[in-house]
Design a protein around this nucleic acid. Sequence first.
DNA 1: CATTTGATGTTCT
DNA 2: GAACATCAAATGC
Length: 201
Amino acid sequence: MSNAKLSPSFYQRQDVVTIAQELVGKVLCTQINGEPVTSGIITETEAYCGRGDKACHANNGTRTDRTETMYQAGGIAYIYLCYGIHHLFNVVTNVENKADAVLIRAIQPLDGKKEMLQRRNKQNINPALTAGPGRLSQALGITTDFDGTVLKENTIWIEDRQLGSGSSLVATERIGVDYAGEDAKLPWRFYPQESNWVSQK
DNA sequence: CATTTGATGTTCT
DNA sequence: GAACATCAAATGC
């Protein structure tokens, strides 16, 4: 059962925080415009809940053209532009009209390292290549063009390669959400204790 | 080293 | 206009 793609039933569970924890160690893969597959181990995630979490774009039933994607059933990509420059990749979870999502903040490169270096205009493989939500999206060729894409092969998908869990997960406050008041303190950011591939240390 | 700043688009006031 | 789930380059020690 290695290389199993995660199925809709994985994403459509109710507890976005559990899903965020389980996504760490899974493998995010992309194949953009017929280019070689690029992939990496997910090393950092954050959970966002559409109900009672002020840090979430779709909190409190806020529906805009941008957040409409998050209200769809789990198992699709929610990608939006941050600070006018960076494409941030999220996995939509839960069922239709429950706007939960998991932000992927960092990966560790596996396949297609050459393509990732080209897309990032870098010479060497180090955490600056893919550790950070804007960085990994650029490395994998993810743009807002793929907002709402179903997570399946030949574009964007996630595999469970049964990689040993390695070290235990650390839970901390989320990054860059100070504006959310009390909700900014929720320990909904997860990464492996011993990984160097996280967005800040 | 740390801190500041410029880039840049979408959403909300 | 201001703020924003950011990054890289420039500036200041």
